[in-house]
Amino acid sequence: MTLAEAPLIEVEHLTMRFGGLIAVDDVSFSGRPCAITAIIGPNGAGKTTVFNCITGFYKPTIGRLRLRGEREYLLERMLGHEIGQHARVARTFQNIRLFPAMTVLENLLVAQHNKLMLASGMSVFGLLGLPVYRQAEQAAIAFARDWLERIGLVAMADRPAGELPYGAQRRLEIARAMCTEPRLLCLDEPAAGLNPRESAELNQLLLSIRDRDGIGVLLIEHDMSVVMSISNHVVVLDYGRKIAEGPPAEVQRDPAVIRAYLGTDDEAIDG
């Protein structure tokens, strides 16, 4: 097994209970670097719960979440913000969470907070206006500008993020997550609410993130055209359990998956 094939993230026996409800039940899968791993399933299958466990918003009831970087990070033991800061896992949200009153550029600079905070000497160098900080800030702006070019929003850089059209907000949220320079990017339904053209653009963006930036992507998606055309590996959840896993073409033909999505014949007849 070469390094590139070694899994970036390993989810082992992940279980999440809320009181009596088991939202995720003993799910294991792994995601490789330079690959898009899609998690699909009907509504309420526990996809977003898996994400919330990986990104530290929930503490898993049972299970281990291993991320390989320079060292191994056990995500279930880290605090929410540490996962972003040290393990370098970035995410987007199902309902977009930008900083609406701040400009597009400011959104991308906030994403580079920890890097800039160090460069500003915890604000001391920054307050004194030392060149160390100013250079770091220029570099951060250049980095943000690169991303603005990739998502086609350079002209909108000084507009409040909340004023952007919906599709642009989606792309900006992805760019913001990428500005944290992550190892693993978790996207929660990035194609929701996009028209076919925007959806195709999104596919291109995600492929370029996989190939150019060489990071691992975890993707929750309902839009099967997106899932089937760009993902390398698909994990299917239903009622909190993993019911299938494999390359997209294979999963598509899996009887269990078809049953989960379309219902069995019997159920269809019974209504």
């Binding site: 972003g84 970035a90 930008l98």
Partner: peptide
């Protein structure tokens, strides 16, 4: 948005 801040490692 505090949640988004946490997700960005702040």
């Amino acid at each position: 948005d505090e949640t988004a801040c946490k997700a960005l490692g702040i």
